Amino acid sequence: MSAQARARIAARGAQELRDGTYVNLGIGIPTSVPRYLSPSTRVILHSENGILGVGPFPAVEDEDPDTVNAGKEPVTLVAGASIFDSALSFAMVRGGHLDLALLGGMQVSAGGDLANWMIAGKLIKGMGGAMDIACGAKRVVVLMEHLAKDGSPKLVQACSLPLTGRGVVNRVITDLAVLDITGSGFVLREVAPGVTVDEVRQATAAPISIAADITEMAV
Rank of each mutant, 00 (worst) to 15 (best):
A5T: 14
R18I: 12
A70H: 10
A203D: 04
A7H: 03
S32I: 10
P162D: 09
V75G: 06
V219M: 02
V141S: 05
R35A: 14
L188T: 10
V68Q: 09
S89R: 02
L123D: 14
V43R: 00
N24T: 11
A134W: 05
I133W: 02
A59K: 15
S184N: 14
L45P: 10
M1N: 11
V156R: 02
T182V: 04
E16A: 12
I51A: 02
M127V: 14
I9K: 03
E216V: 15
P65Q: 04
L123S: 15
P162K: 03
A70C: 11
R94S: 12
P30C: 02
Q157M: 09
R8K: 13
F57A: 15
A59I: 04
M131Q: 14
L100G: 06
L25P: 12
A192F: 04
F84A: 10
V43I: 10
I9R: 02
E16M: 12
Q15V: 12
T182M: 01
T41M: 06
T21R: 07
E61H: 13
V195C: 07
A192S: 11
R8H: 12
P30R: 04
V197K: 02
V140G: 04
R171H: 08
G71M: 07
A81K: 04
D85A: 05
G80T: 10
S38F: 00
S152K: 10
V93Y: 01
A79H: 11
D113F: 02
G80Q: 05
L143R: 08
V169D: 03
T21A: 08
P207M: 00
R139H: 07
D198M: 06
A7Q: 06
Q4P: 05
V23D: 05
A5D: 12
Q15A: 15
I29P: 08
D85M: 02
G26N: 08
Y36R: 08
V172A: 07
K149M: 06
L176E: 11
A218Y: 07
I9T: 09
R189L: 10
V43F: 00
A11N: 07
P153F: 00
L179A: 13
V178Q: 08
V168N: 05
G121F: 00
T215A: 09
S47H: 01
P153A: 00
V187T: 13
R12C: 13
R35S: 15
E199D: 14
V54L: 11
G104H: 04
I124P: 04
A59P: 08
V60Q: 15
E63H: 11
G126M: 00
V141N: 05
G50Q: 03
Q107I: 00
G185Y: 01
L102G: 10
A87C: 12
A205N: 13
V169F: 01
L98K: 08
L100E: 04
G183Y: 03
D99I: 05
V156Y: 00
V200N: 10
I44F: 07
M144I: 06
R189I: 12
N49F: 00
G167W: 02
G194F: 00
N170V: 05
G104Q: 04
A158H: 13
Q157C: 07
Q4E: 15
E73S: 14
G112S: 06
F84D: 12
V23W: 01
I27L: 11
L77D: 11
R94F: 03
Y22A: 11
R12Q: 13
G80P: 10
M131W: 06
A212V: 11
V187H: 09
W117T: 13
